Amino acid sequence: MFLPAVHSEPDRNVLLQFIKENPLGILITGIGSSQHDFLQCTHALFVLDQPDESNPPRHRAHIAKQNPQVKAMLETVDDKPPGVLQLDQDVLVLFNGRHDHYVTPKYYTETKPDTGKVVPTWNYSAVQVYGKLSLYYDSRTPEAGEFLAKQLHDLSEHTETSIMGYTGGDRPEPWKVADAPERYIELMQRNIVGIEIEIRTLQGKFKMSQEMRPGDREGVVKGFAELGGDTGMAISALVKERGELHDRMKQEKV
């Protein structure tokens, strides 16, 4: 990811919260394989384990056992340990923000009428994670079976409550893994593998017009607000927020 200083987000807590709010990640690997492509990617929902002083942050997911990316991973080790495989090389996971959009030069109400030296762009936010991957590939082993059971429980709890808002009371009750037949869940677990990634490098980018002149930023904020809808209002707010943060940081350096 290209990370100009003006777009980079260095706050680790902000980046971890971003992952919690945008759990659909793209797992990317580069693995030499005799049968599968070197570069593989898979969309997966991740659960973040919050870090503490003694443990690095980790995030977890599960994907289909028949996925070519899994087969390429398993091919890297001849003598596999029971249930858990650790890859030697780092993997990359990319998380995209919920809202992104094209930015027309017409929004630049300061520079466009002044010099005309403006071009279109695209506003977006993203976080990327590099880390070491452990693959829990055999649900019949105690370690992998326990990991997958916890993964399915934690993921459904997070998505049902945090994303759907199913918290009970005045809201609907959340769906639970226990609502499905036990035998059915066992069969499902045999067809998936668990993924755990120890986060070693965490980088984030908010490209939200913060580098533009104040009048241009105001034009972008107004333009997206007038565009309306969830995306228009969200980006309008983000441009305003990121612009103010940029100005504060710039003032502090002065």
Results as ranks from 00 to 15, higher is better:
residue 4 P to L: 12
residue 12 R to W: 00
residue 21 E to M: 02
residue 25 G to D: 08
residue 27 L to H: 12
residue 28 I to Y: 06
residue 32 G to E: 09
residue 33 S to W: 04
residue 34 S to N: 11
residue 41 C to E: 05
residue 41 C to S: 13
residue 43 H to Y: 05
residue 46 F to I: 01
residue 47 V to N: 12
residue 54 S to T: 12
residue 55 N to R: 15
residue 57 P to F: 04
residue 62 H to S: 07
residue 65 K to N: 09
residue 67 N to Y: 06
residue 69 Q to F: 09
residue 70 V to E: 07
residue 79 D to E: 14
residue 79 D to M: 07
residue 81 P to H: 04
residue 82 P to W: 01
residue 87 L to D: 07
residue 88 D to N: 14
residue 88 D to M: 09
residue 91 V to S: 08
residue 92 L to S: 10
residue 97 G to N: 11
residue 102 Y to P: 04
residue 106 K to H: 03
residue 106 K to T: 04
residue 115 T to E: 05
residue 115 T to I: 02
residue 116 G to P: 09
residue 119 V to K: 10
residue 122 W to Q: 04
residue 126 A to I: 06
residue 134 S to R: 12
residue 137 Y to G: 06
residue 137 Y to I: 09
residue 140 R to M: 14
residue 141 T to D: 10
residue 145 G to I: 11
residue 150 K to I: 09
residue 153 H to G: 00
residue 164 M to L: 15
residue 168 G to L: 06
residue 170 D to R: 11
residue 172 P to F: 07
residue 198 E to C: 08
residue 200 R to Y: 01
residue 204 G to A: 01
residue 205 K to G: 05
residue 208 M to L: 13
residue 209 S to P: 10
residue 209 S to M: 14
residue 220 V to Q: 06
residue 226 E to Y: 06
residue 238 L to P: 03
residue 243 G to A: 06
residue 246 H to F: 15
residue 252 E to R: 13
